[in-house]
Design a protein around this nucleic acid. Structure first.
Length: 621
DNA sequence: GCGATCAGAT
DNA sequence: CACATCTGATCGC
């Protein structure tokens, strides 16, 4: 969270990303992006009153940010007082002290920040010198060097101060995967799941309001299905995002808010519910009574009937020796044409538990492993008369996509075999057609064949026939916006992204020596006289990290060791995401292939990875 | 009743 | 560990 107070020493009469306390006296306001922690006080009555009294006070932001902000009714009172400034267009603003009529001119330039749609950095130029407020940013290597407006006369501008997002200004973040790498990993993971059948769905657990659109659009493009979200009116003027979203729940990719602990049940309307936890002071019977009222038998008063198509093939993982590789989703239909669904006894262990699974990582050589797999008893009872389907198998992804993905936190909410982690984690060049040949293509499995499990479509569904594949996101007829910078990154190959810089990598992902100069060149792009960290955490020690500058919005649950290993396993470009290179830790060494394989298997089964720091080798197997 | 603040959860 | 919330309790106006 940003701890920036809102004011810069060079320009104390303007406030950025903070709108409370002393900022209530600002002559102008700036909002870098639409995240709540940068909007403190923005809808407070105190500021509202201020606006009513000080008619020359305005809020400046990017056009996309303005659009997103004004979509929220709580901020609509700003409508007449927001001025959007085009990206990379130096704009002069007059700061007026309404008491004394004192005026000050300031030139502001919005630079794309790549953090979320509309996010920008602010470059201020005026009597206080040139200062850069970064807000939260996520720039790929070399992007700063390509920003013309940061340069003048063939060199970077003299910048007095940088107000920097220092979220990841810590040695433990010496590895930050690039957006492309994260995207690739997620795409393959999602693919490994939703191609299993039209009934397999993924849920992206998105924590922030904005910042995942890049993921949504790419998932949608890749698999040809729109992503289900709760709301999309904020994107009504951003067709390149809107095309890929829907409020129709009939899709395999969900980014909706998780349904609520009663709402969920009444929505799912299962036959039976088996509670996992008995609240203090309650009894199983009491909880059962409450839950029972939400089940089908009480709500419909009739015995539900099911017409299953057949049994989903779930036995493959239990028969590792089997050579069977056909594409049929279903075994022969169950012998009973119509039957009431009987609870599957195997799933009555309704609590999350450690279970033993047999993986087929090594064909012909079954390997037992123990991992924490959340089974969803509900899923085994849920059915839908319209679809006659088995329940959807839901793969829950903690979508900390904005920088990272965390396979260790993936929860498999079913009793089927786990996703193909070994494929997912394999290096790009090692993935062969054979790895995925036993799953149907996305077009076969997805799209129109998605089950109609969700019959209560709310009528707000947006079906846009246009298949405009442009990644440029902008407000209609208002020109290009900051989102472009994010969108572009996925379309560029690593070579393209590195075009013009002398960085080179060896095959294993380590930088070879000549890149040090390239790295330093990158670091020296901005050499402000002063740097003001916008500390986001309590215990940052920025003094110890003189050369960490890139502050990609990376979140996730990897330990540094895991992150490093995961990165080493991907393509050789994996270390090129930072604008300012972060050195490897001194003790770092390249793990051996078998070590990586061991680690991936641990991750895949949810086992904790204990690293003995005393050992020189990371994993001693 | 509303907002600010904090703790806790996700 | 981190982020970006969201929820609920408490307090003050």
């Amino acid at each position: 969270m940003s701890s920036f107070g809102g004011q810069m020493v060079e320009y104390p009469t303007i406030s950025i990303d903070r709108f409370d306390r002393e900022n209530l006296r600002a002559r102008a306001y700036f909002l870098s992006h639409c995240h709540k922690d940068h909007m403190k006080g923005l809808r407070a009555p105190a500021l509202k009153r201020r606006l009513e009294c000080s008619l020359k006070v305005y809020l400046y932001c990017s056009p996309v940010t303005k659009e997103l902000l004004l979509t929220n009714p709580k901020y609509r009172f700003w409508e007449k007082r927001i001025v959007s400034i085009e990206i990379e267009t130096p704009t002069q603003i007059t700061l007026v002290d309404e008491a004394s009529d004192e005026k000050e001119e300031i030139l502001v330039t919005l630079l794309p920040a790549g953090h979320c749609p509309g996010s920008v950095m602010f470059l201020f130029q005026g009597s206080g010198g040139t200062v850069l407020y970064t807000g939260d940013f996520r720039l790929a290597k070399g992007e700063a060097a390509r920003m013309e407006l940061l340069h003048s006369g063939g060199r970077v501008k003299d910048i007095q101060s940088v107000y920097l997002d220092t979220t990841f200004c810590d040695p433990k973040y010496y590895q930050i995967p690039s957006r492309e790498e994260c995207l690739h990993g997620i795409l393959e993971l999602v693919r490994s799941w939703i191609t299993r059948s039209p009934h397999h769905v993924v849920w992206l657990n998105c924590k922030a309001a904005y910042g995942y659109e890049y993921l949504f659009t790419n998932l949608s493009e890749e698999f040809g299905v729109q992503v289900h979200v709760d709301k999309l009116d904020m994107f009504r003027n951003m067709p390149d995002i809107l095309h890929h979203l829907t409020t129709d729940r009939n899709t395999q990719i969900h980014a909706c808010r998780h349904p609520k602990i009663k709402d969920f049940l009444s929505y799912i309307c299962p036959v039976n519910v088996y509670p996992n936890v008995i609240p203090m002071g309650a009894t199983l019977d009491k909880v059962g009574e409450i839950l029972k009222s939400l089940c089908q038998s009480s709500s419909q008063g009739v015995e539900p009937k099911y017409k299953p198509l057949g049994k989903l093939k779930r036995t493959r993982s239990c028969h590792p020796d089997s050579e069977e590789e056909d594409d049929d989703l279903f075994d022969d239909p169950l012998p009973l044409p119509l039957r009431s669904k009987v609870p599957n006894q195997q799933t009555l262990h309704s609590e999350s538990s450690f279970v033993t699974t047999i993986s087929q990582n090594q064909p012909g050589k079954p390997r037992q492993s123990t991992g924490c797999i959340k089974t969803s008893s509900l899923a085994n009872f849920v059915d839908c008369e319209e679809s006659n389907s088995e329940s959807e198998e839901e793969l829950e992804i903690a979508a900390s996509f904005k920088g990272d993905l965390d396979p260790a936190t993936l929860q498999q909410k079913s009793d089927v075999d786990v996703p193909q982690w070994e494929v997912f984690f394999r290096k790009n060049d090692e993935i062969t057609d054979g790895d995925l040949e036993n799953v149907p293509s996305s077009t076969e499995a997805g799209g129109s064949q998605s089950p109609k499990l969700f019959s209560d479509s709310d009528g707000e569904s947006t079906h846009i026939s246009s298949q405009n594949s442009s990644q440029s996101t902008h407000i209609s007829e208002q020109g290009s916006q900051g989102w472009d910078s994010q969108s572009d990154t996925v379309l560029l190959s690593s070579q393209e992204r590195n075009c013009g810089d002398t960085t080179s990598l060896n095959k294993g992902g380590y930088r070879i020596k000549e890149n040090i100069s390239a790295s330093q060149k990158e670091q020296n792009i901005l050499c402000p006289t002063d740097a003001y960290p916008n500390l986001k955490s309590r215990n940052q020690h920025i003094n110890t990290v003189p050369n960490v500058g890139e502050t990609a919005t990376v979140s996730g649950n990897h330990t540094p060791e895991e992150k490093r290993l995961l990165n080493l396993s991907t393509n050789a470009d994996s270390q090129s995401s930072s604008d300012f290179e972060i050195p490897l830790t001194p003790e770092a060494e390249r793990p051996k292939r078998e070590h990586l394989q061991y680690l991936y298997e641990k991750l895949a089964t949810g086992e904790s990875i204990i690293v003995d720091k005393k050992k020189s080798s990371l994993l001693d197997i």
